[in-house]
Amino acid sequence: MASAGLAGWRVVDPAGETVAPIERFLRDFAARGSSSGSVRSYAYALLRWWRWLRHVEVAWDQATPMELREFVIWLGQARKPQADSRTVTAATAGKINLITGKRHLGDGYEPRTVRHSNAVLRTFYEYWNELGEGPLVNPVTLQRPGRGNAHHNPLLPYRGDNRLRYNPKVAKRRPRAIPDERWDQLFAGLRSDRDRAIAAIAVSNGCRAGELLGLRGVDVDWGDQLVRVVRKGSRAEQWLPASEEAFVWLRLYLAQLDAAPPGPNEPLWWTLRRRRGTSGLRRRPLTYDALRAVFRRLNALLGTNYSMHDLRHTAALRMSRDDGLTTRDVQTVLGHAQLTTIADVYLVEDDAAVLGRVHRHLCERREAAARPAPPVAAGYDAADLSVLFGQDPQ
């Protein structure tokens, strides 16, 4: 649950009391400069672990790798708790969308969630081992302890020396670019100039949803058509370019605000919400959940399952396939720390292009098989026979 303390989030037991080991760890984690979203993610991972330990009746400081193994097995079979049961999405959960080719979110824990949970628990127990108050052996063990990648060459792939033992395998993600014709349909389905401005900026420079929602009035440079975002990992400020179309929609959105435009230090994106106990609408900053609601309405209209992150993938693939931009340019705009991330994720062959070339190969073989074999006769020139039978001498 959310709290007003340093960490911003805390985990409570069934009696409503704060779980002290998690509270101390989260305070330390937040003091290291972690964002509120990261603290929230770690808190939920530890909450799942604490519930599991309570179920198997094992104290947190007596957990062993065997408890972690059973926990990982349970996560692979369990269903995620939901406040409300699925209604509209019950028929599509875990299935492939025929339009986008993406899989809808299922009711279980994804392998990436399990891997993240293991990483959180490893960090949690390392913190307590340093203090000398946790178990003697970290229950989250390594598959093959090694030297890591302290002197890693950034042009070479990383080795899996420090892979966690019970991490499930994850299929390599493919970039999810939205085709141009689908992008036109998506953009036409947006209902407000605010949403059009957000989508146009995101597809221009590939900034993340959280970075985009953090824009203030002072973070817009109208003259050079730049926006300043705070990067997700490093928290560094960075100016990014945006298209002329994006600034046109941004101007239209600001001109339609009922109240005065946002001040220099006020949020740039606003929405109207009805406050409990009142009858009127009040202007409030746009949140991530409200932006997700925009895409839920859009997906219901188009029959798709797009998300804001698909706009980032679209921008990344468009830039990576432009001969005028280098890989370093794409890395800088996207804000990736490793150059290998760009090469591994975005500099891959497009499936549609590969399929097109294979289809052309098959058509050429079929056409070659349909052509009659050149006649062969002793004493005659092959070129003369080609002219006689109306064939190309070449």
Rank of each mutant, 00 (worst) to 15 (best):
L190N: 06
G280H: 06
S192G: 05
T278W: 10
A202Y: 14
A290D: 08
E211A: 02
R273N: 11
F187A: 15
L302M: 04
D180Y: 05
A188D: 15
E244S: 13
Q225F: 12
R297F: 09
D219T: 03
T271M: 11
F187Q: 14
L281Y: 06
T271D: 14
V229H: 02
I178M: 06
V220P: 04
N305Q: 04
T304I: 11
A259T: 03
L301H: 07
R182E: 03
F187T: 01
N205V: 02
L254Q: 06
L298C: 05
T271Q: 10
R274H: 05
T278S: 12
W269I: 01
M308W: 14
A260Y: 09
L281P: 00
R292L: 13
A236H: 10
S243H: 00
A199V: 05
W183Q: 04
L250Y: 04
A260D: 00
T278L: 13
W249I: 02
Y306V: 07
A255C: 04
A202L: 15
R235N: 09
T287P: 03
L213C: 12
G263Q: 01
P261K: 01
L250H: 05
P267T: 00
L268P: 10
E244V: 04
Q225C: 14
W239R: 14
P241C: 06
D184E: 15
L186F: 03
N299M: 01
R228M: 14
P285L: 14
D221V: 02
R235H: 13
G210C: 12
F295G: 08
Q185K: 13
V203Q: 06
L226E: 07
G223N: 05
W249R: 13
L226T: 02
R273P: 01
P261D: 03
L302P: 08
W270Q: 11
S243C: 02
N265S: 13
L272D: 04
A259D: 00
L286A: 03
I178D: 06
W270D: 05
F187W: 03
F187G: 14
D224N: 13
S279I: 09
L302D: 07
I198K: 10
R208E: 14
R282K: 10
L213W: 13
Y306T: 03
D221P: 06
D184V: 11
N265M: 10
L215S: 06
A300P: 00
I198W: 04
P285I: 01
L186M: 10
L268R: 04
V227E: 02
L281V: 05
W222V: 00
A300F: 02
T278F: 08
P262F: 00
L272Y: 03
R284M: 11
G214K: 05
R276L: 15
